[in-house]
Amino acid sequence: MDFLTIVFPISGVRTSVLVPPLFAFVLSFFTSMGGVSGAVLIMPFQVSILGYTLPSVNSTNLLYNIIGIPGGVYKYIRDKKMVWPLTWVIIVGTIPGVFIGYYLRVKFMPDARTFKLFIGIVLAYVGMRLLTGALAKKNVSASKSGSFIVTNARFTLKRVEYEFMGEKVSFSTAGMFALAFIVGIIGGAYGIGGGAIIAPFCVTMFNLPVYTVSGPALMGTFITSVFGIIFYSLIPVSGVTSGPDWLLGFLFGIGGFAGMYLGAKTQKHMPEKWIKLILSVIFMFIAIQYIYKFF
């Protein structure tokens, strides 16, 4: 089927037009259940498999988020699992972090070798946090009694509180903001959107149910990805901008849209422990490959 193979004009990537949407669909189906858009793994796919190592690969990844994430977010809102106070704390904290991360990527990590090491370190840490969370005794079961929707969400400058599955959940507003800012820097440099990897930290550091973190994390990733595209496309560093490969990003995005919608729809049938385990195995496998190859 050589007639489906094209060379993408901006990135120079040569592949079948079916590869990006199919890969994004399968990946995002599983990752969206845990509040991860899939961009965290589409990045190494672009770098290692497609050979796309220019700084513009970051903004292409962000374009995938912008097109793909609404599918999952719509489903989480419809199912009343969107914790809006958590969503806004993530957004406000990650936007300035994304800008700092963008500057660090373009200014100090333009070469592929250093960038792959950075990816490996980030994925290893996130994978370990997920694994320890999955092995912990406390994991919410999708079959547990209680309403499978978020209710009574309240916000103050000190704490955010809400109820889910018959239990009251709360966390420090300042603590979540600080986490979002740090994750935003990592996400901006990685090209995955500020909130793309915040869900595992919310689950393991703040003990929030993964079912209620997924929607806010995806929404935060969507909003910060919009800002990220603007930073990469319009703000030059050393006289150079790094806008996305629009066609490649679009193809990844349409696959992600379908995958995230189905993933969000399937989430309530998947035990929290297995969501964490699936993500941790994927993250750790890629991390080991990148860190090993660097040395």
Rank of each mutant, 00 (worst) to 15 (best):
L4V: 07
L4N: 08
T5P: 05
T5K: 11
I6N: 04
T15Q: 10
T15L: 06
V17Q: 11
P21N: 10
S28C: 08
T31L: 14
S32R: 04
G35L: 00
G35E: 01
L41F: 12
I42V: 13
I42A: 10
I42K: 07
M43C: 11
P44C: 02
V47W: 02
V47G: 08
V47M: 12
I49D: 14
L54D: 11
S56Y: 10
N65C: 13
V73K: 05
R78W: 09
K80D: 06
W84S: 13
P85G: 06
T87M: 02
V89S: 09
G97A: 04
V98A: 15
F99S: 05
F99D: 07
I100V: 14
L104S: 09
K107F: 06
P110Y: 08
A112L: 10
R113C: 09
T114L: 15
F118K: 05
I121Y: 07
I121P: 01
I121S: 05
V122Y: 08
V126C: 08
M128E: 09
L130K: 14
A134F: 05
K144E: 15
S145E: 10
I149L: 07
F155E: 04
T156M: 04
K158F: 13
E163V: 06
F164Q: 03
K168M: 12
V169D: 01
F171D: 01
T173K: 04
A174C: 15
F177Q: 05
I185G: 06
G187P: 03
G188C: 07
G188K: 06
A189D: 09
G193Y: 09
I197D: 01
P200I: 08
P200L: 05
F206P: 02
L208H: 13
L208E: 12
S214G: 00
S214F: 00
P216V: 01
F222L: 14
I223P: 02
V226W: 11
G228W: 00
G228K: 03
G228N: 01
F231N: 03
F231D: 02
S233Y: 10
S233I: 13
L234S: 05
T241I: 11
L251E: 12
L251N: 13
G253Q: 01
G255P: 00
G256F: 01
Y261A: 14
G263T: 02
K268C: 15
H269A: 09
P271E: 11
P271G: 13
I275P: 00
K276V: 07
K276L: 10
S280L: 00
F283Y: 14
M284G: 03
Y292R: 15
F295R: 04
